[in-house]
Design a binder for these strands. Structure first.
Length: 278
DNA sequence: ATGCGGACCTGTTAGC
DNA sequence: TGCTAACAGGTCCGCA
């Protein structure tokens, strides 16, 4: 489900519904996701308060009131949906936030996550976000950073790790998941196993441009999920970001028509064209 | 310090 | 058809 564009789009949806509204009640159907949910503290941060801000940092969605911040991460399979009903609408609904919109309508924000790799947490009012353990040391935002290419080039100089692992390291840059990593390296013509420190400044420019272009495209398209794209048979207007190499082992490279290769890199499937990427 | 593999979970798909 | 194994878009932890 969530790559950065999807979290961005969900955040916008939630903002639209929640901003200026009041959280009245937070209902938890289980007390842990990836980690235990600090239920009392989440309630203290959100309940009875007006929502002043809903924003995204990395793949976290954050909801601010004057009492603190609610923190939501969707893991691999999470989703946050606004419904008119307080009843769970899906299996694996783990939390339901009852709120009254700015216009006075009773609505319900449902947190759903089958695999439970997600997180619900909070940050106290007086605690700086970037000092919180979850956010400390987090890398730059790929879309907000003005000189992403130069930054990546600098950060990578001493690195011997494969450039794909470097790209996916959230301490360097956030929001580049497994799909974007494969796709953007293909677009830039860089072999995913190449040492990050051996990639040229020029190639990092191509890479940064590819990352930003794909992320922007996907956000514009409404945060279309790639796997949904694959699964959505006959659901027109749904697939917007066309994949070039991801999940296409053995299929022809869009450049040279030779077969796309598969490698496993730190446990993740990595797709590339061994003729077009060096 | 760095980089890798395993772990956390359930759902879906490929292969026998 | 029905079972099993492998794998899935993220992130943290511990070990070499």
């Amino acid at each position: 489900m969530p790559e950065l564009p999807e979290v961005e789009c969900l955040t916008r949806n939630v903002r639209k519904a929640l901003l200026g509204g009041t959280v009245e009640r937070a209902e938890f159907l289980r007390k842990d996701l990836r980690w235990p949910i600090p239920i009392a503290r989440v309630r203290a941060a959100l309940c009875g308060e007006t929502v002043d801000e809903v924003f995204r940092r990395s793949k976290y969605m954050l909801v601010r009131t004057k009492n603190g911040l609610g923190v939501f991460h969707l893991g691999m399979t999470g989703n946050m949906l606004v419904h008119d009903s307080a009843e769970p609408q899906a299996l694996h609904t783990h939390a339901i936030f009852h709120f009254r919109s700015k216009a006075g309508k009773a609505q319900f924000l449902h947190f759903v996550d089958p695999r439970r790799f997600g997180v619900i947490d909070c940050v106290a009012r007086d605690e700086a976000l970037e000092e919180h353990s979850m956010f400390k040391g987090l890398g730059v935002e790929p879309l907000a950073h003005r000189k992403l290419a130069a930054y990546l080039f600098e950060r990578s100089r001493a690195k011997k790790q494969p450039v794909k692992a470097f790209l996916m390291d959230a301490r360097v840059v956030v929001g580049v998941g497994n799909i974007y990593a494969s796709e953007s390296l293909f677009t830039a013509g860089i072999h995913p196993l190449r040492a990050a420190g051996r990639v040229s400044a020029e190639q990092y420019h191509l890479l940064a441009a590819a990352i930003q272009k794909t992320l922007r495209q996907a956000i514009k398209a409404g945060g279309t999920s790639f796997r949904d794209f694959k699964n959505s048979d006959g659901n027109p207007g749904y697939f917007v970001v066309q994949l070039k190499v991801y999940d296409k082992v053995g299929e022809p490279c869009p450049n040279c028509a030779k077969k796309i290769s598969l490698a496993r890199l730190s446990g993740r499937s990595t797709f590339f064209c061994e003729f077009c990427q060096s």
